[in-house]
């Protein structure tokens, strides 16, 4: 189940989507210019094997794509609240199972019941307020793919810290003050927490590594049970990075091991994905975090002489997680 026969072919995918007039989300949505949440959604749609139904937690993506009376979604889409996307998806999934079993709409030419369910949630809706509903759904074993677009703060409300905000980062609720410069603690290890549910498939993706991402999304669709995918999602409004560098930063995050790419199968089998595996095999390729940090003004205060210790600390935290990952993947010693 953690394997797929599908090999993404960019030309083929583009051709098919073009012929269908299908992009998943259409232009005219109002995500900020350079917001790769849009890219992530499109990559999920590129990897779809059959019709997709989307459940969206409250957040930027939800708001920006469905400003009444407009909708940018070409697929069935539903949003209920901030903290319950996984619970809503649980209900959709069981309803689908029941209606298919009953052949309820089989004679109705207007209704199609064969679809995959994907949930999109931001880090606020996933790490924090939605964690309970997500944990419950994972435990119950519903078949849907939960895609976290992780932009490391509550961006929809205007850049407040979340359980995903990295150490040291400026947000409006962790300002870079004279006494307390940025966020004093690090990130919640959410992927570990989700993997601990022993669900069939957990993975991390970065939109720069689109081939890796598409394959993982397809594996997610094909898996027989709950799937969780954490996608690296820059936010140029909240991170103060140059919008055009959004995809390049998605690459740097992997190259610095700030955001390693890996899979966890059944909660126990940890596998590094090719871009991160290449670093594991050639540790000299691992770039210092400074290169990543300097692309975003949310970390600017860390470069002040009195705060330089924060960069060192940041590096230590990244190294610690990286070593832990190598150990889990059986790549140590």
């Amino acid at each position: 189940m953690a394997e797929t026969k599908w090999v993404p072919n960019i030309r083929q995918i583009a051709k098919e989507m073009h012929e269908r007039g299908f992009t998943g989300i259409t232009p005219g949505h109002r995500l900020c210019a350079g917001c790769v949440a849009g890219t992530i959604v499109r990559q999920v749609m590129m990897a779809a094997r059959k019709p997709v139904v989307v459940i969206n937690a409250t957040g930027c993506l939800e708001v920006a794509t469905t400003i009444f009376p407009y909708t940018a979604w070409q697929v069935p889409w539903a949003h209920n609240a901030f903290e319950n996307a996984a619970a809503v998806a649980s209900g959709v999934e069981r309803a689908q199972a029941k209606l298919i079993r009953d052949k309820r709409f089989e004679g109705d030419p207007d209704i199609e019941m064969d679809y995959d369910i994907v949930v999109f949630g931001g880090d606020g809706g996933t790490y924090d307020i939605g964690l309970q509903a997500l944990s419950g759904a994972m435990e119950r074993g519903h078949k849907f793919m939960y895609v976290l677009y992780d932009n490391e703060a509550y961006m929809n409300t205007g850049i407040q810290r979340s359980g995903s905000t990295p150490f040291g980062a400026w947000t409006t609720t962790t300002p870079a003050g004279k006494v307390i410069p940025g966020k004093p603690v690090g990130k919640k290890p959410l992927v570990d927490i989700i993997a601990a549910h022993r669900i069939p498939y957990v993975a991390t993706v970065s939109p720069y590594y689109w081939n890796d991402a598409l394959v993982k999304f397809r594996k997610g669709f094909e898996a027989d049970g709950p799937v969780f995918i954490r996608a690296f999602s820059t936010c140029n409004r909240g991170w103060y990075n140059a919008p055009e560098e959004s995809i390049a930063i998605s690459r740097l995050a992997v190259e610095t091991c700030v955001f390693p790419l890996y899979e966890v199968v059944n909660g126990v089998e940890w596998r590094l994905s090719p871009p991160s595996l290449a670093i594991a095999k050639n540790p000299e390729k691992k770039k210092p975090v400074e290169e990543y940090l300097k692309t975003q003004r949310r970390f600017r205060h860390m470069f002040e002489p009195e705060n330089r210790w924060m960069i060192k600390r940041f590096q230590e935290m990244v190294d610690y997680e990286w070593e832990l990952l190598l150990e889990r993947a059986g790549l140590k010693g």
């Binding site: 649980s90 209900g91 959709v92 709409f105």
Partner: peptide, 20 residues
């Protein structure tokens, strides 16, 4: 669906309902 809270009970019911 033996959910983990009433909040999820109603959320899942809603999901089922909008799924037909």
């Amino acid at each position: 669906i033996r959910v983990e809270s009433e909040h999820s009970a109603l959320s899942a019911s809603w999901g089922a309902s909008i799924a037909g």
